[in-house]
Structure formats: C-alpha cells, structure tokens
C-alpha cells in the first residue's frame, strides 16, 4: 500500500483519472519527490496505466522524479529577468553549487532550477529560495543568498523597535511559517497550530502580539489541561524539552522571524512564556 489516503474512491475510470494529480501531490508531499516504486503501486492500486502516470509526472514542473534537496533555489529566466541578467545569476549559482539547472547538490542541501516567469518582472532578476524572494540580484549577491539559505532565514530581518509588537513564528522542525493571515486577532495575523488533548484533535490560534494571551480553539480546553501542539505543515510536535517555570508543564518552542525562540506554556490558563531573541536587540 502506498499509505496515501484517498477517500471516496470512485469506480468510474474517468474519475480515477481525474484523481491522479491529487494522488501524485500527496506522494510528492510525503517523499519530496515521486519514487518509481510508489508510482508503480499507484498504477496497480488505482488501475491507471503507468504510461499515463509517468506522462503526467513528467509533464508538470511541480512533480519531480528525482529526490530534491533541502532548499529549492529558483532563478527566473523570464524575458524581463533574462535581459536584466538572469542567465549570469543562474550561471553563478551553477558554479557556486557545482550543479546544473534541475540538479541537486551531492550533499542534498540545494536543488537548483530555472523558471520561466515568477510574475514580478519589475524586480528582476529574481531568485527564490524556499519561498523567500530576492529581487534585483547581482552576481556578487549570490554567495550571500546561498549562505543565508543555509543558515536559515530567521536570522535575516531585524526586529522592529516597538514596545508592543507582533511576532512572526515558524516551526522549529520544518521552518514553515505558522502564521495564518486569514485569521486576524489583535489586528494581526494569528499563529495557528494543531492541538491534541485527551482524544480531541483540532486547531488552535494564538494572538501573535507578544504579551497578549488571546487564544481561540476548535474545542473548549479545560483549565489546567496540558495540550500537545503540532506544526500544521510537517505535523511534528512542537516540543523543546524545557518546562514552564510557573507550572512545570512542557514549554512549546517556536522560531521567531528575526532571530530567537519564543516559548509558551502548554498548560491552558497558565501565562508562562519566554522570549529569547538570541542577542537581537529590542526596545
């Protein structure tokens, strides 16, 4: 079994075919690429011929048949970026990483690819690493950009100098942002995590304004209840090993954009929290 959970599987072949891309999406999300073995299993399980699966998998750029690196570097070679020097940037990255476009470095750190337009032509040449955009890139910037990616992106922006400030946090494991801009509390996007307590699982949003303790959840959490929090993206538990200085419940760490770690107490009702900005100065 592929362990890919596709519900409501219909029998008609047309619908099966329409399901192919979501299935491939799930495999790609799980493995980071499409392993041959998995595709063969999809073929037998869903009765879609391997030729069709392979055709789709090789057609879309979003799918990769080869393992990808930890960081994905895309250089725009669209018309505007091209005339502004995109190809020289691409060449520089190829030299720095010692790979060709579409390849992954031997240490599996970087995958380098070229794209044809990112839709921000005025900012070209553009380099995107893991969803972070770098505009008007010059050849001499390339080294710095690659190093930034290697060191993690939390260390780039400095924190704004205000007494009350919203923080932006990301998962300590996958570095994916935990912010949810569709949900606004205290005038800012919230921090959204998955929680689990007892036999209940659901979402929990926290005010991102540091010092406020507004919490909303799918379920009413009983006072004094210790909840487990999980990253909604990589599903790993947000747990750091430290305990709350007030109630001895486990602390939940999250990486703060701009540097540092914020820890909040996992016990409902406890106000214990810590902000360690790791040397970055705030007012």
């Amino acid at each position: 079994m592929t362990n890919i959970n596709v519900t409501d599987l219909e029998n008609s072949s047309k619908q099966k075919k329409g399901r192919l891309i979501p299935i491939l999406d799930q495999i790609q999300a799980k493995f980071g690429y499409l392993p041959e073995e998995e595709l063969r299993q999809v073929s037998t399980e869903y009765g879609i011929s391997l030729v069709d699966i392979y055709g789709v998998a090789t057609f879309y750029r979003a799918f990769s048949l080869k393992p990808r690196g930890k960081h994905l570097i895309s250089v725009c070679l669209g018309t505007a970026c091209h005339v502004r020097g995109g190809p020289t940037i691409a060449k520089e990255i190829e030299q720095q990483l010692n790979v060709k476009a579409g390849e992954t470095t031997a240490d599996k750190e970087f995958t380098f690819e070229t794209v044809n337009c990112l839709g921000a032509c005025a900012l070209g040449p553009i380099v995107v690493i893991d969803g972070h955009y770098f505009s008007s890139v010059k050849v001499k910037d390339v080294k710095g950009i690659i190093e930034t990616a290697q060191n993690g992106f939390d260390k780039i922006d400095s924190v704004s100098d205000q007494k009350v400030f919203p923080i932006e946090v990301s998962c300590a494991r996958c570095n994916h942002s935990l912010m949810d801009s569709r949900h606004i509390v205290d005038g800012h996007a919230v921090i959204k995590v998955t929680i689990s307590f007892g036999n209940k699982h659901g979402w929990l949003v926290l005010s991102s304004v540091y010092g406020r303790d507004k919490v909303e959840s799918q379920y009413k959490i009983p006072d004094e209840q210790i909840v487990q929090m999980f990253c909604p993206h990589c599903h790993s538990e947000l747990i750091g090993g430290t305990t709350c200085s007030e109630c001895v419940a486990p602390m939940v760490p999250m990486i703060v954009k701009g540097g540092g770690v914020v820890q909040i107490c996992s016990r409902s009702g406890c106000k214990g929290h810590l902000l360690d900005l790791g040397g970055a100065s705030i007012g």
Binding site: S49, L50, V51, D52, Y54, G55, T58
Partner: peptide, 9 residues
C-alpha cells in the same frame, strides 16, 4: 497494451 506514451513537455 499502453506500453509507450508521451513523456515530458
């Protein structure tokens, strides 16, 4: 048979 097909784009 469906042994061969189009690949890539």
């Amino acid at each position: 048979a469906k042994a061969i097909g189009f690949r890539g784009r």
